[in-house]
Every structure is written in C-alpha cells, then in structure tokens.
Amino acid sequence: MGATQHEVWNISEILPPEERDDLDPWWDRFPWWAVMLGAVIVLFGYYTFFVESYNNAWRFIKPGIKVTVVVTLWAFLFSMIIGLIAGFGRVSRNPLLRNLSRTYVEFIRGVPTLPLLFFIAFVIVPTVAPWFGLTNKNISKEWRGIAGLALVYGGYIAEVIRGGIQSVEHGQMEAGRSLGLSYGSTMRSVILPQAIRNVLPPLANDFIAMLKDSSLLSLLAINEITQLSKLYVNVSFQPRETYVVLTFTYIVMVLALSLVLHRFERWMSRDRAGAR
C-alpha cells in the first residue's frame, strides 16, 4: 500500500561495476543455458535438414505438423470455453452449478490423461453423439481426440479460472456492491479485469502442455507427428534418426509458442503501469 517502491537489496546493484564483478562475476550471470539449448537445437536442425537419412524422416513426419497444430488449436479453443463455464460454475452462488462443476473437475483430475482420452473417445463421444443427432461411426478420430483433449484441459483451465477470480481480494466485490453495482456488474467491471491478468501465465502453461500432450493422440491413431514417427520407424528401422527429428520438431514448436504467448501477455498488460 502507499506509494512505496520495492527496494532491491541486491548488493551487486549498489556497488560500482569493478567491485561488482568480484562479487558477482559476469560468467556467473551469463545465460549459459540459452547458449547450450541453442547449440542443441542447431545441431538437431543440422541433422534434420542436411543429413539424408534424417531428412527422409523429416519429410515423412512433416505433414503431421499441420495435424498437431490444428488439433491443438481446436482443442484449446474448446477447452477455454469449457474451462470458462466450469470455472465460473466453481465460484457461482448457485449450489447446483457449483457442485456440477466440482464433480467434473474432480473427475478429470482423478484419472490419468491417457486412460481419460480413451474413455472420452470411446465412451463419452459414442454416448453423447446421438444427443446432437450425430452418428458415432461418422465422427472422425481427429474430432474424438480434440474432444478428449478439450475435456481434459477444460477441467484444468476451470481451476485456473477459479483461482484467478478468487485471487482478487474479497474487498473488491464488497466495494462494488456497496456502490450499488449488481453482482454481475461488479464481476464484469471490477473482478474479471483483475482476474484476467492473474490467469494469463497459467493459461499459457496449459496451452503449451496441451501442445505437448497432443502427442498422446498418436494412441488414437491420429496422424500427428508422433504417430507418423512411429509409422516411419516401423518401415525404416531408423529409430535414432526419426526420434531426433521428432524431438527437434517439438522443441521448436514449443519454444515458438511460448515466445508468442509471452508477447501476448506483455501486450495484454500494456498501459497499465499503475495497476498491480
């Protein structure tokens, strides 16, 4: 509270540079990890694009990138919708909504991801399909996979949303209500704008985790990159080449996504210098 700035009691910042180097030398502060990670990626990249046996694996796997990306994007979109609904349900004043949401979240958290994906793809989807006038046979495995990831991550995102809302001090709701704003109005104008900022970093984590977990869909025989890698190993007998390429593909995708999400986060909190 008040206008006090956070003071930094790091000795290295109040000493002149020459003395600071004695206490905290540059090689101790240098981000060696980034150099090493970069070296690994460049090495793998070199193999992938310039060594023939690796490049053959790459050309076999490449079409799967589109599947991985498209499946992840759809699944994230739906998991956000489900997560928002269930997250608001978790903090609702309506006991029915609260308990339904809690049941869903606890169920998801109580089962490992892989069995849950099978359960959704082969139990939930066939059961629910007729309700929407769909025939189970006509639903592609891709959409089963998307439904699976969306329902699994919807449960995790619901908890993120709940945490974000509850991280806003209770006094904020009381202040809004005591000014005559309704519950919904206070939620929209006071609580949610503050909750969104708290929610962005964990949501980004879930997005990235989902990209990685899309590899589990190989077990539903969806032709994303992990599945194509397995198929290529079966025909080429070159697991070494194939899995170097696969690993390279994932780490580049994950790093690119986290960079984009980081930018987005910064953009969302622009111009808000005064707010916490």
């Binding site: 006094g171 809004g176 006071v190 005064g274 707010a275």
Partner: peptide, 21 residues
C-alpha cells in the same frame, strides 16, 4: 442494489479498484 446507492460505505482497506484510474 438500489438501497446501497443511497448509502455510501468507506472501508478500512480502501478497496479502490487498482486497474482503474
């Protein structure tokens, strides 16, 4: 809500909205 508009309240912890000017 209508009653509260006629009855201002000031809190110990201020409870200003930090994201607004």
């Amino acid at each position: 809500d209508h009653a509260r508009t006629e009855m201002g309240m000031v809190f110990q912890s201020f409870n200003l909205f930090p994201h607004l000017t």
